[in-house]
Design a protein around this nucleic acid. Sequence first.
DNA 1: TTCTCTCCCATCGCCAAACGATGGGAGAGT
DNA 2: ACTCTCCCATCGTTTGGCGATGGGAGAGAA
Lengths: 110, 110
Amino acid sequence: MAVTVPDLLPGTLDLLILRIVAGDSMHGYGIAQRLKLLSADVLQVGESSLYPALQRLLLNGYLDAEWAPSENNRKARYYTITKAGRKYLAAERKEFDQLVAAIQRVLQTA
Amino acid sequence: MAVTVPDLLPGTLDLLILRIVAGDSMHGYGIAQRLKLLSADVLQVGESSLYPALQRLLLNGYLDAEWAPSENNRKARYYTITKAGRKYLAAERKEFDQLVAAIQRVLQTA
DNA sequence: TTCTCTCCCATCGCCAAACGATGGGAGAGT
DNA sequence: ACTCTCCCATCGTTTGGCGATGGGAGAGAA
């Protein structure tokens, strides 16, 4: 069963994107594929969710972008994480872990 | 630092409410308190998030409600989880765990 | 008695995030 | 020429949560 990310956990998309780009500069299409791959098809982003998210991240200064030909010689926009992006990623990731821990505690305890 | 639930993880509110009510029939105000308590103040629900959520759950048949005096002798609406609610809870919980696992995998792997 | 405090309910209007649908352009292979 | 895949992007809608707001009604204090 394939699930779109925010089906259950919205707000996590930015986090995932940043993490993927942090590993390697990529274009949007590639990010979507990589997400699907890494999550063994559990996670998926539609393009209409992805591109707005990228715009957001650009606007907030967490990503930089530049046009360059892709591996397939297409016009593509490559995203690179900024210093601020890394900082934000680290912070959000920590908060994510805390929240998940808290939620799981509630789910288990009662 | 106190965080409202959907600050990072919306969609989880229903799950938390159901789990809490599953443990014990409660009124709205009590649910909010219990959530705060169980999560050691990490999680919080405002009333303007809570009550609409409860309506939703009622409407979907996951909860039943009836009026009864509270422990403090106030007028209160007690919520009880239904059979369908338990089923839904179990399913969503499973999905939640899967998603979290997938996300964490992505966050760690790259 | 009145006043205030806490408990407990609920809605309205707003905002942000994600989604489906849609619409391209432009290599590459048939 | 045609189709396929790659790659970009926006528009309009829905959904969920939030801040502000507005009660009613016990209980203890003034």
